[in-house]
């Protein structure tokens, strides 16, 4: 299961709507080994295309150096589909190189740049095999010391 806080979820959706009809892409970073999606990093789609996305090569290096310096990893890798369903394409599967990441797909095919619901789905992609998982949105991520709880309402002091 993928747990996202509301502001990260909303940030990914807003990015996808803003870049429609081109595909939007980015990551959510978190401390290594924790599976906590804490820090949304929007990336530029260097392909600038409605059917393809690719992080710019220099941006990619900067991103991974930054993650290294912070002892973080890409917990989520997201991108949008702008004319098709929120399911990994054959290209997505072939190029999925982070077996530990949650691959999030957002489809903006229904409302484009406008308000309205989007399809928002998450997958594991390992060795070409796609497994869908639930997405749970919480007000804020559970405290680091307690186990992940999808019913957490967060501590008012952290808001």
């Amino acid at each position: 299961m993928l747990i996202l806080d509301r502001s990260t979820y909303d940030g990914i959706v807003a990015h996808a709507k803003r870049d429609h009809p081109d595909e939007a892409c980015g990551i959510v970073a978190g401390p290594e080994g924790t599976d906590r999606a804490e820090r949304l990093v929007e990336m530029v789609n260097a392909a600038g295309s409605p059917t393809f996305y690719e992080f710019d090569s220099a941006d990619l290096l900067r991103l991974y150096r930054d993650l290294d310096d912070r002892d973080e990893e890409p917990v989520v890798i997201y991108h949008s589909h702008t004319a098709t369903e929120a399911y990994p394409s054959r290209t997505d599967i072939g190029l999925a190189n982070e077996p530990g990441a949650h691959y999030v797909l957002v489809s903006t095919r229904e409302h484009g740049n406008n308000d309205g619901p989007v399809e928002f789905r998450s997958y594991r992609i390992v060795d070409g095999e796609v497994t869908e998982e639930d997405v749970t949105v919480v007000d804020s991520l559970p405290a680091t010391t307690s186990p992940a709880s999808p019913t957490s309402q967060g501590d008012p002091d952290d808001r």
């Binding site: 892409c25 990551i27 990336m43 392909a47 059917t51 393809f52 996305y53 690719e54 992080f55 090569s57 990619l60 290096l61 991974y64 890798i77 991108h79 990994p88 394409s89 054959r90 290209t91 997505d92 190029l95 999925a96 190189n97 982070e98």
Partner: peptide, 25 residues
């Protein structure tokens, strides 16, 4: 790709980083 690809010169003390593209369709 800007240094000659596989012919890119490498010397003592250089650092080489390999990163798979983050890309898809």
């Amino acid at each position: 790709r800007f240094l000659g690809g596989l012919d890119a010169p490498v010397s003592d003390g250089d650092q080489v980083v390999v990163l798979p593209a983050v890309a898809g369709g």
